[in-house]
């Protein structure tokens, strides 16, 4: 009884203390609320990278799990051995295959980010210039495909581009070509796939930058004798720059590591690092090598990832 009485008094005192500005005062409650998601993300997002790094320093072995031990110890004989294998990384830089794969991924990602920007800009501009219910509708039409399955959208392009698919049938019918074009399983199809799937990621930040633009600036430019193209490059584009950067980073990063699009739309010679990692893991079952590929890919992506974090920190719309 005295225990519960004591705790009741404590509760009341605590309540009095906490009454004021609860978000700043209670400590244990705050700690629990902040601690749970931090713990979850630490365990399932951050620690895994340490594990990947550790395994990238081991050697593939015929064992379960299929890699060598980094640390071995025997307490009785006061013996600890650390065996670090840099072989995976050396092999990555010696073998042209991996270097080519990284370069070709970056190239494909850069070009497709640029194409995405070209396709997205008029859409975002048209949405920003429209008003009321039309704007809501145009915006929804951009977001709608994003809510449907990504895999099925890629599949739709497979059907669309294949040898006896609609595009070829149409071009044959109107007589532009004599025999079907080979479009599926080429780099061309990969570009289309990336532009298609990541379009909303580009349109939305562009739209939110263009929406804020003051229309009178364009009128002023026109009054001062600027031509439409001049106004575009000297007024509109600079003002849309935050959106352009945010959109490009959001498309570029996942595009570098893309697996599904090159696997389904690309050809055997479409080299992308996401696919190399996948094959290393699922076909060669070389976990240490796959880990080394992942670590180097992360290093390549650290800069753009920091960029997006900073822009989020400043409260830019993404």
């Amino acid at each position: 009884m005295s225990m519960s009485l004591g705790s009741a008094v404590m509760d009341r005192m605590a309540a009095k203390l906490q009454k004021y500005n609860f978000v700043k005062k209670i400590n244990w409650g705050r700690a629990v609320v902040a601690g749970i998601p931090t713990f979850w993300l630490g365990l399932f997002f951050f620690v895994p990278f340490l594990v990947v790094f550790k395994i990238s320093l081991t050697e593939a072995a015929i064992a379960i799990p299929p890699y060598s031990e980094l640390l071995e110890w025997d307490l009785e004989e006061a013996y600890i051995s650390i065996k670090i294998n840099l072989g995976n990384y050396l092999f990555l830089f010696e073998d042209d295959f991996y270097l080519d794969a990284y370069l070709s991924s970056v190239k494909i990602a850069v070009l497709s980010t640029f194409f995405t920007l070209l396709v997205a800009f008029p859409i975002a501009y048209a949405i920003a210039k429209s008003d009321g219910s039309t704007r809501v509708l145009l915006l929804a039409l951009v977001i709608l495909p994003f809510w449907t399955s990504f895999l099925l959208r890629v599949y739709a392009w497979m059907e669309f581009l294949k040898k006896n698919g609609i595009v070829n049938e149409f071009l044959l019918t109107i007589g532009v070509i004599d025999e079907p074009l080979i479009m599926l399983q080429t780099d061309f199809a990969v570009y289309i796939g990336i532009v298609y799937t990541y379009l909303p990621f580009m349109v939305l930040p562009l739209y939110s930058a263009l929406e804020k633009m003051d229309g009178t600036l364009l009128e002023a430019a026109q009054d001062l004798g600027s031509k439409p193209t001049q106004s575009f490059f000297l007024v509109t584009l600079p003002l849309a720059m935050p959106g352009v950067i945010a959109g490009c980073v959001l498309v570029f990063i996942p595009a570098v590591g893309e697996f599904v699009i090159p696997a389904l739309l690309g050809g055997a010679d479409t080299l992308m690092i996401g696919r190399v990692l996948w094959d290393e893991f699922f076909l060669n079952r070389d976990w240490p090598m796959a880990s080394a590929v992942a670590i180097v890919m992360l290093v390549v992506l650290v800069l753009p990832i920091m960029l997006i974090r900073n822009s989020q920190g400043k409260g830019e719309a993404v």
Binding site: V47, P48, V52, P254, V256, G274, L277, A294, I305
Partner: peptide
Amino acid sequence: WVTAPLVMPEVITGLSLLLL
């Protein structure tokens, strides 16, 4: 930790979680 998973390539997330 909240923003990084949004842009992390899926192959890296998948591999790292499996190894964990």
